[in-house]
Design a protein around this nucleic acid. Structure first.
Length: 228
DNA sequence: AACAAGCCCAACCGCCGGTCT
DNA sequence: TAGACCGGCGGTTGGGCTTGT
């Protein structure tokens, strides 16, 4: 492995403990970001991209290691059905997990098995969700402050908003409330919902059954409590 | 015990969008 | 306004490890 050098002299390949230490010291001193200056400031012979990736996927505090729980798996399935391969977006609702980890997990566990997407229905659902988002954008952008728009931007990403049908999506968003949705809480809500689905034996792909009014909407509404 | 196949995951690559000059 | 730079993202690869035959 030694002697790995990129075109500009950057080292490549697996990171050594010494490199990890240098990178952690750099981040402790300068914070995250400014990755392009890492080489100059820390002595690392790594380019900025490589440093950022190493930090985000391996060194960052709070990262979970080990197998994903069934709850986390459920969240991934749900959110992937909504957003597709938006790994970084999905990762926001799985605290301690990285987009890379989720991406790897999906590829090895689901992609090959053809599980559990039904593309035609997924597309129908995607179209509905986009329609909902468009409607909300029109509503909020016409008469909100920038802070309200920020709240809205975050709300539109939330899984329970995505899981509810058109009619009840618009009411609670543009109120100008100051509460910010907490990704950790949101992930817990999804996990709680998943528990309900799983324990009650409801999981049979109903979420993909989208070409009618949601047959299990009452279950979902019981399981999801608004948190903003 | 040896080999093959599959799995897992760290890391790289190319592209894109935002920001700066 | 255009180009350069940078950070972030998704796709892909390659090597080590595990499991099956």
């Amino acid at each position: 492995m030694m002697g790995w050098r990129g075109a500009q002299g950057w080292r490549k390949g697996p990171w050594t403990p010494a490199e990890d230490k240098l990178l952690m010291e750099f981040v402790a001193l300068h914070g995250e970001g400014r990755w392009s200056s890492v080489a100059g400031c820390s002595g690392l012979k790594r380019n900025g991209k490589s440093c950022r990736l190493r930090w985000v996927n391996y060194l960052r505090p709070g990262l979970k290691k080990g197998q994903l729980s069934p709850q986390e798996e459920g969240i991934i399935i749900e959110l992937h059905a909504l957003w597709g391969n938006k790994w970084s977006t999905i990762a926001r609702y799985l605290p301690g997990r990285t987009d890379n980890e989720i991406k790897n997990y999906w590829r090895t566990h689901f992609k090959k098995k053809g599980m559990p997407l039904q593309n035609d229905k997924k597309q129908t659902y995607d179209a509905k969700f986009r329609y909902n988002q468009d409607q909300k954008v029109q509503i909020t952008m016409s008469n909100t402050t920038s802070s309200e728009s920020e709240v809205y931007d975050r709300v539109t990403e939330l899984p329970q908003a995505a899981l509810q049908e058109t009619s009840d999506l618009t009411c609670q968003v543009a109120t100008g409330g100051q509460q910010q949705p907490n990704p950790c809480v949101m992930a817990q809500d999804v996990a709680r919902w998943w528990d309900t689905v799983f324990e009650d034996g409801l999981w049979s792909g109903f979420v993909w059954n989208l070409d009618q009014d949601h047959p299990n909407q009452d279950v979902m509404e019981q399981s999801f409590s608004p948190c903003f």
